[in-house]
Each structure stands twice: as structure tokens, then as C-alpha cells.
Nucleic acid binder design. Structure first.
Lengths: 224, 224, 224, 224
DNA sequence: GATGAATGAGCTTTCATTCAT
DNA sequence: TATGAATGAAAGCTCATTCAT
């Protein structure tokens, strides 16, 4: 005991206005760790991620991670579950009222949904889920059921409605919904994987607008 | 890879004449290992894959892998490089002659390309590249430059040509090409990740046909 | 230990006059911690014991342990040393006057000694010492020299005296003393280890009386 | 590959008659490891034992332990289970025929049993079981049921028989059996814990003989 | 060549100990 | 004083890689 106290005293005397070696950040730590974890898991994948990298990025030591998360797997799961929970909140927001036309419904939904996907950390999840789906099938399913299916269903319904009321051509709504979503998903997946590699980076806004234009009107001037 | 191939060639020469044709030949080993590796790497990703799993699938033991491949990383690289090499051969085949209409050119290309993507192991590469792009950026770039860019460029050229000659509406060919490709890519990536999870499995042919119809003619009956 | 006691004494002096007597006083802490430590160390052994378990049992937090004890090892040592000190006090009590017969001396000593062994925390020490003797040989020696040897010596002396004066048969007093003690020791060691497992729990009083009867008179009706 | 082969060649050339870095000892390893484990677990206890110590004693590396045992706990359990299995074989040997007198039965059994306890590794188990009983209650129970109870029961039966036929005094056979066994057990427990500390080491044979004499005939010349 | 026992570097996890609060 | 968040030094365990067989 004596010895330790003296040690502290010395340290204090030697450099009185020193930054403390660490601070208590009980409330903020989990978020900081999750943010760091997201960055590293996204980049390297689950297995290739070393907890030390996450710790370093979160500016804590390895041991601290285990105060807030049971183990590496639980940290990863927390990350995904957290994203799912946030997505659901957003789902409620983006749950669009049916508009005058099916086209308007689709565009409104797509724009709302895209706003979150492209501008928040939520947009990083699809790449991670794709990469880890076989290692964490339960998480993938949870994400799929809660975050992807509902949005797809809105599209299916809108397209089916548009087909029925003569606004859209006769088309399979299920397939059309998937196709409509593919460029959005692909864009996000690409961004966090091939993004740094693709020599011709994409103008996202232009990309999305072109997508809507193409999907609605087609490429052909004189449709067959 | 190079080194291994030479070694394999030697082995073949040395023993080919006194072994019956139908017998499993020693120089099939690298192929068998690569096949096994593809299956496991695809499922689990590079870091989560244990060489023992690959060995088991290839019906050899761990030690044997190191006879044919320098180490785990080289095995993975061989896999991708091998796929790139095959893709290039196919590229030559799918390098379509320009057709009467831009639409025909695009459809011809797409069908050819899709034939290989959907029906051979080549279609498994995109998911792996997406997952490992940040851990193997050089491989990702190689794949991108040799397998994706050329195909995309054919589309860009065809669309640009179609826009110029009045066949297509006025649209950004770069963006349009990416959007056109997205559902194809997404379909393959999905297949090997979320495929087993997606409750409503896809009819690929229907999906592709709907895609072509939508892209060419649009959804709207009365295009704006 | 010494240091802690002084510290405690100070604390008592400083605050004794303005705190009600019945209130749990600060200087009970070391005792409470030692009690908790005894329970957990006894159950799990030194290395398998987590300080957090002791803290919880003592209704303090981990950090508090380090206020009263320098480290885990010192806490353990304090525990044993404390027991040794108590044993010595008791030794003085049980240091029996020589009785009319050697038998009476032995029985008087055994009953006195047993009273403490069977009914106080002192009886928990043998199991701990046995378990940790190789990890803390100095402690084991201290316990042996101060707590076991003196008692054994009393027995050796009494037996030797009994042999000499014809009260006892001709027997090796050293061996006989050990043998006489063994069932007592074993009984305590057993109690805190196999006790909960032994399906037929022991009636201690019966056990001890049988022991005395057997040891003094033997099993045989017609001694050879 | 090339590189490694050359490396080997160099090493070989440089010191051709070198001892190999390791040998394959598939069949002997488990025994060697168990022996090493017994020594270290016995000395330090389960929790304080580092696998590295066992590995070192067994002249292998840490990793090798995991080839033969699933984890530290399983290694420990294997050790005990192995001892139990051996004990049972011996039990069959020591399962004594009933002799002319109860005294003879007891002495025959005790001598047989003691032969193994005092002269083989089996005698090390009681100290370990005592120490770890609370951490491995299932193992302790298994040991108790298979190794201790049967022997004790033989004694109980013999004593009860002796009491009934007038050979022995009227005594509680259950208690007497425990008391009879205590010095044997204590002797073994002592040997592997306090043994190195006890300044006056024991002559085991003398100890046992004194025990038998005392137990059978008692200390008193003129039994009361 | 092929095998798989053995190695050893590296990672996850634990927990005694420290120290900001 | 007391707390408990944070640290960091092990320890257990895994697995790519080596190498005796």
C-alpha cells in the first residue's frame, strides 16, 4: 500500500498538469467501441479483425472491450442488432403514405430509404451482412426480415398496384421490386468494398436519378 | 500459381505414359484443392477458413496443401488469379460483335456474360472479391480491371452509341451501364450469401428477363 | 497484517466518540473481508478465487480490498497468520495440566483441542493448508510449527509417559501420536472438501467417541 | 515451397547428425503428458497450474497438449478418470476373500490396499481430490463412489461381522471403519502436502504397524 | 509425395491491480 | 474512504506452417 501511494505522489509531482492516464466514460464507451468496431469489422470482416485494432481505434485497451461486451462475437452481434433496431425506427419514418400514383409512392419511398442508407452508418451494414451471412446466418436472417423484406414489400405492393390500375406495364412485381432495389444495394456494397479501387468513382445522385429515370421510362425511345 | 503449374506439368510428363488414362492423376490435385478452397473460402471468407477444412473437402491432409501452394494466402490468390484467367478467356468469347441495334448488342452481351456467371464457378468470385476487397486490394483491383471493367465498357459504348443514334433516350452512359449491371452482380452476390436465407427464392430466368424488359422499356405505360 | 491493524486502530480512535456503539464500525472491515476471504479461499483454493467473489461476499467492492490488504497474496497470508495467532491463544488455554493418568491427559487435551477445531473457523485452516502447502511452504511451515507440532508434542509426551509408567502398552509414541491425531485432522479436512459429497454424513460426536474408545481399548475383545 | 526445401537441406548439411527437433510419439504422448500433469497438478493445484509447466515437464510445447486433450479441464479430468479406472482394476485384486477372523480380513485388505496407495501414483489422488473437491464435485463424487466407498464398505462389513461373532467389542462399525481408514488417508495426503515441511519425516511401515496394533489392541494395557 | 504430429506465433479472454472520480 | 472503470500482464487456446516418418 505505502509503496503504491508514494508512486502516485511522485508521478503527480513530476508532471502535475498531466493528462490523466484514462478517464471514466461509462456512458459513452459502448458507443465509442461500437463505432470503432463497425469501422474495423466493415473493413476486415469478423475473423480478420483483431480486438486490439478495435480497442486502439476506440482509444481504450483490449481489456476494456470485455467490460462492455461479453466477447468478440457478442460485440459483433451487438453491432448488427443495434443497426437493426435503428433501421426499424427509420422504417417507421419511411413508411410512406400511398401517393396519388404508384410511381410517386415508389420514388418517395426510395428517396427516404436512400437518405439513410447513403448518409448514415446503416449503409455499412449490407456489405457486412453479405460478407458474414454464412458465418452468422441468424443475424443475416434477422437483418433480412426486419430491414430488407419490409422495404421490398412496400415496393412489391406499389408495383402490383401500379400494374393493376394500368399505370405500369404488365410485369412480375416480385422480380421488379428486387431489380429496383438492386442498384441501391449494390451501390452501398460497392462503396465499402470496391469503392477505393474503382478508378471511376460514382456520382451517387446522378446514379440514383439515372436509375429512377431508366426504371420508370426505360432506355428505349420507342418502347416495343 | 506459375510455379505450381510448372511443377504440375512436370509431374504429368514424368508419369503420364504408364498410368491408365481414367485413373485420378496426381496433377489433378491442384485443381481439386482449388475447388475445395473455393467452396470453403466462399462460405467462410479468407480469415475464418481453416486449411484443415479445405484439406478435408479436397480429401487430402493439411500438409499436402503446402506441397502445391506456398501458404494460405497464395492458395487464395491462386484461386482468384485462376478465375481471372478463365474470365479473360471467356471475355474473348463474349466480346460481341456490334449488332444492328444497341439494344441487341446489350442483350447479346448480357446473355453471354450471364451464361458464365450464373452457371460456372466464376459466378462465385464477385461475392468473395466484395468480401475480401479491403484485405486484398491488389487482387480486387486485378479482378476489377480484367473482369468487370471490360464488360462495363462494352455496355458504356453500346449505350453511348444508342444515345447518339437516337435509339436510346438521352442518358448518362456511365451511370446507365452500372445500373444495368447491378442486378446481375447483386443476383450473384445474393445467391452465395443471403440465398439460403431469403425465404422467397428467385427464379433467375424470370428475374433476368424482367430486368431486360424494365431497363429497356421502363415501367410506365405512358412514359413521361 | 501488522500494518493493517495499526491503521484500523487509528480509524477507531479518530471516529469512535461521535458514532453510536451499535453502528457497524469502519474497523470491522478487515474482519469482514477476512471472513469472506476465508469462505471463498476455503472453497475454491487460492488461485481459483477471484477477488471479486471475496469482495461481493464481504459486501464491498474490489478496490476496497486493496485499501486493507496489499494484494491477493497478502490477504491470504493475513488469513493464515491470523488463524495461527488465534490458535496460539487457544494453545495456551488447551495447554493441559498433566492429569492423574496419561489417558486422562490425552482425552482432556483432545477434547479441548477438538472443541475449537470443530466449532470455530480455525477448523477450516487444515484443509486450506493442505491444499496450498506447496504454493505457500513458508505459511505451511509456520502453521505446522505453531499449531500442529505443539499439540502433537503434548500427545507424544503423554503417550511416552504412559508407556513408561506401564499404563500403556509398549508403542512408538511418535507414531502413536500421529495416528491418534489423524482421525481428528481427517475429519476436518473431509468436512470442508468431501463433506457435501459423502452420502453418509458423519455424527461427529459419535465419531470422536468411537475413536477414543478404539484407540484406548482396541477393537479386539481378547487383545493378543 | 522451393525456399522451404532449401532451408531444410541447409539445416541438414550444417549439422547432419543433429537430434531431430522433435519426434513422433503418438502412442506414448498421452501417458507422458498425464504423468507430467499429475506431478504439476498435484503440486500446485488445478488453477495455479500453467499448461506451459505441464508441457515443459512432458518435454513438448503447449500446443501439443491440445492435440491430445481438449482443454485444461479435460486434461485434469482425464487424469482423475484414469486413476479411477486403475483403482477399479486394483479393487478387484484387493477384493479380499473373507478370512478366518475379522481381524485377518481387515489386515489383509488394508495391506493390499496400502500397497497400491503408498507405492503408485494412485496414492497422489486423494490429496488432489481433497483440494479440488469443491471445484470438481462430480469428479470427487466419482472418485468417492468408485474408489473409497467400496473399500470402506469392506471394512464396515468385516467390523460388523467381528462385532456380531464376538471377536470385536461392541462398536459402531460405520464410525470404526472411517477411523480405521483415516490414518491411511491422512498419511497419503500429508505426504504430498506437508511432507516436505514436516521436520520429522515418517517411517511409513512403522506408522502402519503401529496403527494396526493400536486399533486392534488399544493403547491401554488393562482395557477398561 | 503424402501424412499428421509437433511447433510457435498470435489471438481472445481473464483478472489482479491501479487510479480517476 | 469507497468505488468501479480502465489497465496490462499473463494464461488458455487456435491454427498456419514445418518436418520426422
Amino acid at each position: 500500500m505505502q509503496r503504491q501511494h508514494r508512486k502516485v505522489a511522485n508521478a503527480t509531482n513530476a508532471s502535475a498538469e498531466h493528462e490523466p492516464r484514462w478517464r471514466r466514460r461509462k456512458d459513452d464507451r459502448p458507443r465509442e467501441i461500437l463505432n470503432a468496431a463497425l469501422a474495423v469489422f466493415l473493413e476486415k470482416g469478423f475473423a480478420a479483425t483483431r480486438l486490439e485494432d478495435i480497442a486502439e481505434k476506440a482509444k481504450v485497451t483490449k481489456g476494456t472491450l470485455f467490460i462492455y461486451f461479453e466477447n468478440k462475437e457478442e460485440l459483433f452481434r451487438s453491432l448488427i442488432r443495434d443497426a437493426i433496431a435503428q433501421s426499424q425506427k427509420i422504417s417507421e419514418i419511411t413508411h410512406v403514405e400511398i401517393q396519388a400514383t404508384a410511381q410517386d409512392t415508389i420514388i418517395l419511398f426510395a428517396n427516404n430509404w436512400w437518405k439513410y442508407m447513403a448518409n448514415s452508418d446503416l449503409g455499412k451494414i449490407p456489405k457486412m451482412i453479405i460478407s458474414e451471412a454464412n458465418n452468422f446466418p441468424d443475424l443475416a436472417k434477422e437483418y433480412f426480415d426486419n430491414c430488407l423484406l419490409p422495404g421490398r414489400q412496400i415496393l412489391v405492393d406499389a408495383i402490383r398496384h401500379g400494374v393493376k390500375n394500368g399505370e405500369f406495364k404488365d410485369i412480375d412485381p416480385e422480380a421488379a421490386a428486387r431489380i429496383f432495389l438492386a442498384p441501391y444495394m449494390m451501390s452501398q456494397i460497392w462503396r465499402y468494398s470496391m469503392g477505393p479501387i474503382d478508378s471511376a468513382p460514382m456520382d451517387h445522385l446522378n446514379y440514383i436519378n439515372t436509375h429512377l429515370k431508366m426504371t420508370m421510362n426505360g432506355l428505349l425511345k420507342q418502347p416495343s
